[in-house]
Amino acid sequence: MSWEAVARKDFRDAVRSRWLWVLSALSVLVFAGAAVGRLYVGNGAQNTQGLVQGFLFFLKQGTAILIPLTALVVAYGAITRERESGTIKLLLSLPHSRDDVVLGKFLGRSAVVTLPVLIGFFVAFLALLPAGSGVDILVYVEFALLTALLGVVFVGIAVGVSAAANTNQQALVGAGGLFSIFWFLWNFFVSGVNRAATELFGLSNPAQFRLRLALKILNPIQAYKTLVDSLFMSGLEARVRMFSMLLGMIPNQQAAQALGPELSPLFADSMVLLAMLVWLVVPLAVGIVWFREAEL
């Protein structure tokens, strides 16, 4: 398949870049260092139950910002940089369709982002092994996979932006803009929509919470965080936590009452995962369609 050749070439090319090695070293340092620090320096080793959980809880705050940022930096130039340097002419002189170029780039860059993450987690996993129980290990592996998925989602977003952009600068602005929206502006957007909808339709208090939750889940970073939380607590507790203050230290009682006692299947883990996958597919599809029309 044509996209396979493109992906392999792109990965081979990217592996030579210092980026991959810096990222790998950094993620090993962060993940494994945090594991060792948390386990052996922090709480001591008496309370093994919950140690891995505590560690992951703490780590999630870092991965939720680091992974999307890394993915965007690695992938925003995937297409535009080739267009600006002229390597795209060499690439498209060969019998690859433009769709295959975008898909191949997505796969190649996904490998570039997920590989250091998985290496870092594997090293951290070895560090945690002495303290972890069997259940914890499973949770840990799920956490690693979710984190890798978060990376892939943001590679999809960045490659989509890169395929739709005409210049590297446009792609940078687009990718940076989306990141700012997800990280800084999303909750303003959520409250804005909620306020407008409440005024228009006179939503009840529980309905307002459900609307806000649905909108929050549509943010891939928040979706990732709540899925990680679901690894240690019930789905309801994890969703309620999305409304809490100070990194989850002050729970929101109103949200708990509005969304409970049984969590609607609309907000189940599978639906949250689906929301993440939408962000994987839609930007990539938009990028593919735009790139079909581009003049090189």
Partner: peptide, 29 residues
Amino acid sequence: RERTGVLPEGFSVYDRLTGHEHLEFAIES
């Protein structure tokens, strides 16, 4: 393009790949 060989204008090569790897990529493609 499956039946055409192209030496384009204004192209550049992949800096980090060797000449051999460029040809391997063309052969695979």
